[in-house]
């Protein structure tokens, strides 16, 4: 299994990844945790917006759009070796 840790922003559409670390601090971190992004949460990349940013993710049953500023600071590890669904 691929243990490489990468930013959430980099995972392709359809792929799932498990959150390792939140790099952002302060209220941004709090907000992300409140919507369920903690270590171990599995996130699925669903859909890019027309300009490629923000990107929509499936987080604990809800679809949340994150800008690259946020998603680049969420470190994840791949769950499925990036097999496109």
């Amino acid at each position: 299994m691929d243990e490489k840790v990468i930013p959430l922003q980099k995972i392709p559409i359809g792929a799932k990844a498990k959150v390792k670390t939140l790099l952002s601090m302060g209220s941004v971190r709090g907000r992300l945790q409140d919507i369920g992004l903690i270590e171990g949460t599995v996130v699925e990349c669903l859909q890019k917006s027309p300009a490629g940013d923000p990107i929509a993710y499936l987080i604990r049953g809800a679809v949340i759009a994150l800008r690259s500023e946020e998603s680049s600071k969420i470190l994840v590890e791949s769950c499925d070796g990036y097999v496109h669904v």
Binding site: S24, L32, A56, I64, R67, E69, E70
Partner: peptide, 11 residues
């Protein structure tokens, strides 16, 4: 600078 942005896309 732009602040953080989380937008929920409801069903």
């Amino acid at each position: 600078v732009p602040s953080s942005f989380t937008l929920e896309l409801p069903p």
